[in-house]
Amino acid sequence: MESAKEPKAIMKIEHLNATFQPAKIGNPHGLQITYLKDNSTRNIFVYHEDGKEIVDWFNAIRAARFHYLQVAFPGASDVDLVPKLSRNYLKEGYMEKTGPKQTEGFKKRWFTMDDRRLMYFKDPLDAFARGEVFIGSKENSYKVLEGLPPSTQGNHWQHGITIVTPDRKFLFACETENDQLEWITTFQKVISRPMLPQEYAVEAHFKHKP
């Protein structure tokens, strides 16, 4: 008799999210599931030949989230809770980035903006991000600037973006002016939104991987 095996992962409903990703996964019935592991985002990509199976899993995750939120926020109405069941990413796509010293060469990375988490990956289907950046609000000294500092070198793409945080500046470069505009607009929407009490806790415990 085989001994029972431990599960490979335990995902807390509190931080669980699911979003349809047919183009990224390369399957019309592709689903991306994310959860937090040691305060870092973990991606799982799943698909099924039967679209109904994937939709059922998506709805099951949303139902579990709804039950969790009802318990966590007993005074909230269903209208307030439904938008929190699952979320789509604010934006995804390729940009170039450089390291914290801003002397390293720029490297092309896949970026995902998930609420206030800006994550970057070597490949769109990587399980873990190479790094994550918390994007706070303008009241807390976060801002986005068009362009790069004059001394910047090593970027192949010419349409720069600078994210200023209380700790440091992050430098990115986009391939096209349209990409640059879309990313800046996305960052501005996040930064212009006041931070919620629970987001201060996320900011305090945030781990950035250089």
Rank of each mutant, 00 (worst) to 15 (best):
A4R: 09
K5C: 05
K5L: 13
P7E: 07
K8T: 11
A9R: 11
E14A: 14
H15K: 12
H15F: 13
A18C: 15
A18W: 02
A18G: 09
A18E: 01
F20D: 04
A23M: 06
I25S: 01
I25E: 02
N27K: 11
P28V: 06
H29P: 03
H29K: 02
G30A: 03
L31S: 06
K37F: 14
N39W: 11
S40W: 10
T41H: 01
N43V: 03
F45Q: 04
H48R: 06
D50I: 07
K52H: 09
D56W: 00
D56F: 00
F58R: 00
I61L: 05
I61G: 02
I61S: 02
I61V: 12
R62D: 11
A63T: 14
A64I: 08
A64N: 13
R65P: 08
L69C: 09
A72P: 03
F73P: 01
P74Y: 09
S77K: 07
V79F: 00
K84Q: 14
R87Y: 04
R87Q: 13
N88M: 04
Y89I: 13
L90M: 08
K91M: 14
G93L: 06
K97S: 05
Q102P: 00
T103E: 12
E104S: 14
G105D: 07
G105C: 01
K107H: 08
K107S: 10
K107Q: 12
R109F: 03
D114N: 03
D114L: 04
R116V: 01
R116K: 05
R117W: 00
L118G: 00
M119T: 04
M119W: 00
A127E: 15
G131A: 08
V133I: 15
V133P: 00
V133N: 01
S137T: 03
E139Y: 07
E139D: 14
E139F: 06
Y142S: 03
Y142M: 03
Y142W: 12
P149K: 13
S151E: 15
T152I: 10
G154D: 12
H156C: 13
W157T: 04
Q158I: 06
G160H: 10
G160C: 09
G160E: 07
G160F: 08
I163Q: 07
P166Y: 08
P166L: 04
P166G: 08
D167H: 12
K169R: 12
F170Y: 15
F170Q: 07
L171W: 13
L171S: 03
T176M: 10
E177N: 07
N178A: 14
D179P: 00
D179M: 11
W183N: 11
Q188P: 06
K189S: 15
K189V: 06
K189Q: 15
S192W: 02
L196T: 10
L196I: 04
P197E: 05
Q198C: 03
Y200N: 04
A201L: 05
V202A: 00
V202D: 05
H205A: 15
F206K: 02
F206L: 04
K207M: 08
K209A: 15
P210Q: 06
P210F: 03
